[in-house]
């Protein structure tokens, strides 16, 4: 990925010349170090810097915006009702009327694709956010407690991760009745250990920082130290991880739907569309190509974003 990354929040500090006695505010040597603002303003400034320094990251953000718009405004964007069956237009090739053709039940592929973004995005967003929170909580607590408790918690996480994800999802499909919330629960169980792993490693690293000892020396409680000092300093790797796992969740959700144990039909989902398309490979290839491509592009966008975030936050790539 591009390595021309300038000033980031983690920019290494070059101590300036011995002039600490003076009271004038230091003027940063490079133009890249705008005074950092707080809250929303800081987030906005960070976003602008990200777009400027990470070209591919900007592309991925644009793609992701398209998917989000598709998901949110599906009813406005879709030319037809995704469930409406045009009985006289079964498996019809793409045309002016049906831009991406129709499926075996005469439903408009484009409309189903747009609505499919909904289930995909809802499942992925909820799963990622819930797992991020859970995994961070578990990882930070485990890393902070250390010793025996850490050992027990981590072996449990190892256990979950030792079952291949799709097999675990299949197992959980037996346990839970098929529904969107079941899919989310199952995926959360599968993804959380990965967040835990990163959060724990980061906690172990941050715990050794002097500012943690300084906080203790000030009299800060463990909880306060965790919230004020540990969490903010692990935000960068967690965001990167979230983006990459988001891509994984999109794949897993569609795989489950493809196997008929994810989003239950007739609700349109990309995986479900692929599954019905698989029966008409030669007769109606558009039934496979359209959802296959859009699924891949969505995964691509989040992988790209993850890569860009990693570069953006990598102190070694700072100039």
């Amino acid at each position: 990925m591009s390595s021309d990354v300038a000033g980031s929040p983690l920019a290494p500090v070059v101590p300036d010349q011995p002039r600490s006695g003076d009271r004038t505010p230091p003027t940063p040597s490079s133009s890249e170090a705008p005074p950092r603002r707080r809250g929303a303003a800081a987030a906005w400034a960070g976003l602008k810097r990200f777009i400027r320094t990470e070209k591919l990251g900007a592309v991925s953000l644009a793609l992701i915006t398209v998917f989000v718009v598709m998901a949110v405004f599906a009813p406005l964007l879709a030319p037809y009702d995704p469930l409406q069956q045009f009985r006289r237009n079964l498996t019809e090739a793409p045309s002016g009327t049906f831009w991406l053709g129709t499926d075996d039940l005469g439903r408009d592929v484009l409309s189903r694709l747009i609505y499919g973004a909904r289930s995909s995005m809802i499942v992925s967003v909820v799963t990622t956010v819930v797992s991020l929170v859970l995994g961070t909580l578990i990882g930070v607590t485990s890393g902070f407690l250390g010793k025996r408790k850490d050992m027990v918690i981590q072996r449990l996480m190892d256990a979950i991760q030792s079952v291949p994800p799709l097999v675990l999802l299949l197992f959980l499909a037996v346990v839970l009745t098929p529904s969107m919330s079941s899919t989310i629960i199952a995926l959360t169980i599968v993804i959380t250990p990965s967040f835990n792993r990163v959060a724990r490693a980061e906690t172990m690293r941050i715990r050794e920082e002097t500012y943690i000892e300084a906080a203790r020396a000030t009299g800060s409680s463990s909880l306060r130290t965790m919230v004020k000092h540990v969490l903010p300093n692990m935000a960068a790797p967690m965001m990167t991880m979230a983006s990459l796992l988001f891509a994984g969740v999109i794949i897993a959700e569609s795989a489950l739907s493809f196997l008929g144990i994810g989003t239950p039909p007739p609700t349109p989902s990309w995986g479900g569309m692929l599954s019905s398309g698989a029966r008409y490979v030669e007769l109606a290839p558009w039934m496979i190509i359209a959802p296959g491509l859009i699924l891949s592009v969505a995964v691509f966008a989040f992988n790209l974003l993850g890569d860009a975030l990693r570069d953006f936050f990598d102190p070694r790539l700072q100039r």
């Binding site: 929040p9 983690l10 500090v13 101590p15 707080r38 920082e209 002097t210 500012y211 000892e213 300084a214 906080a215 020396a217 000030t218 004020k228 000092h229 903010p232 300093n233």
Partner: peptide
């Protein structure tokens, strides 16, 4: 009883003002 540390930057949380 407060403390001042060796590493001036390391002892300050980089994400706080």
């Amino acid at each position: 009883m407060q403390m001042v540390f060796q590493d001036p930057f390391g002892s300050l949380n980089p994400r706080l003002t």
